[in-house]
Design a protein around this nucleic acid. Sequence first.
RNA 1: GGGCACGUAGCUCAACUGGCAGAGCAGGGGACUCUUAAUCCUCAGGUUGCAGGUUCGACUCCUGCCGUGCUCACCA
Length: 536
Amino acid sequence: MPSGVEQYPHEQGEGTSVSFEQELLEQRREKLRRIESLGYPAYPHRFSYTHTLAQVLAVCSSKAAEELTQEKSIVRVCGRLQAIRGHGKAGFADLAQGEARLQVYVRKDAVGDRGFELYQLLDLGDFVGVEGYLFRTKTGELSVHVSELTLLAKAMLPLPEKWHGLQDVEVRYRQRYLDLLANVEVRRVFLTRSRLIRALRAALEQRGYVEVETPMMQPLPGGAVARPFRTHHNALDIDLYLRIAPELYLKRLVVGGLDRVYEINRNFRNEGVSTQHNPEFTMLEFYQAYSDYHDLMDLTEQLLPEVVRETCGTTTVLFGDQTIDMGRFARFTLREAISKFWPEESSRPQFSDLADPGRTVAMIETWNCLHPEEDRVPVPANSEAPSGEFSHGAALAQLFEAVCERKLIQPTIIYDFPVEVSPLAKSKPDEPGWVERFELFIGGMEIANAYSELNDPEEQRRRFEMQAALKEKGDLEAHEMDEDYLRALSYGMPPTAGEGIGIDRLAMLVTSSRSIRDVILFPLLRPEISPDAEKE
RNA sequence: GGGCACGUAGCUCAACUGGCAGAGCAGGGGACUCUUAAUCCUCAGGUUGCAGGUUCGACUCCUGCCGUGCUCACCA
């Protein structure tokens, strides 16, 4: 038999040589043509099966050879061909459905000449269906003795090699379907992610939360400090923004009497990409009326061990070379944390230093002296009234991140944040410069952010005005004035606490993934330039 | 955006100090009716990411570009 290429030269040759990949494609086209000429449809519409592969394995794995021979039960099963081993007028092949594998045994005298010709035209990756009886081979492997073989769909391109899998990171992300086929661990990561989200939903539903969906396209991007993506609606001729957070809409729903609401959905932020940041990411936000941030601290400490146990079967997870106990939480105020995690004994700031804006400057300068190259924190302006300058509070928040964040491996709640970096949070009654807000850190990453929601419309307006002043000074991330939100608050919002949990990062923790791209099926990459497009 | 690395056959990887681009798997042809990373014989498969430069000679050295990874900055 001459090779397919010689027999069927590529039509679009134009003098240039046909690439090897095209050659493989041509070979498979030819095989498919020959399968059709045997009378098999190339793309049949369905296959009625009696069992999934997992069902066959569950029922028969424990059955001995004699038992199977006695029953000689006929099954119809299907799947993707994962391995083919020929033996002249017979052959073995492995069918795969997800992680389930079942061997089939194809003999010429059992499937007939036509069936065996079909078998010889199969490639790795093809979908097939078989009918036959179950038996055990000499080596004891459960197999289907095939009497009828059907092609269900042909793989026109070769799948990645079975033994080494698919290693090329770029191909793994761009063609995730190949990654999922070639690397079982990848498949398991995404199944775990799915279980995590299901467990979160169950835990919230159980506590009386209602799931809602709020706009992803918003005329005003609000609820977070971040740069948005902009888009345009043609019919209305208006600019819209992909949401950076659902927060302001969810709180409108609390105004509307939905006392416990949550949403699990995508946020979009037009910012850098890193191992911890994807431009679109999944966030859980939930709001609970008649509660404050203390209640949410308690809830968080209940919820996380619960869902992690539901997802992983245990509350201890391995992350990098760290073992993290998701069932034990430490709590520090932001100011305590700076003092506690300060790297040098002699210059360690006391709590009183952190309360005094006048001393913040000296403290940051000390830090910057200790870390001349990186981890530098900008020094705030000396005025005590923040009016657009880089503020004392913002500086403290940055100092906290520089000093503490990557050291917070075990679950740690950091609470009480500067008002300047928290435009939507309620102030502490005794310290107006500080708000009732906490963040949860695990594995050196910020996992959750929560606060007692500011529900005083007058105060909220002043906060927005502070943000407007920042915007005036060129801060691209400052929060927008949102009159409609102020109107909603003016109708009255009960005391409410709200929290956002980064689902991707939580998924990283429970799947031991170092990069956020490993828990997002299709992370954002630059588009591929096709060789054809380049010629244009 | 900055820094550091990487890019060789469909896949996984070699190629010494600059000296003829190679192997395994996958693929084509052949043998084989209990194999399971099947085996045996055989054949084909490459603009070494792209574009320049240095050189008698470049996968190798230099410059630029493209893509990806890590990292820093920004952020969650």
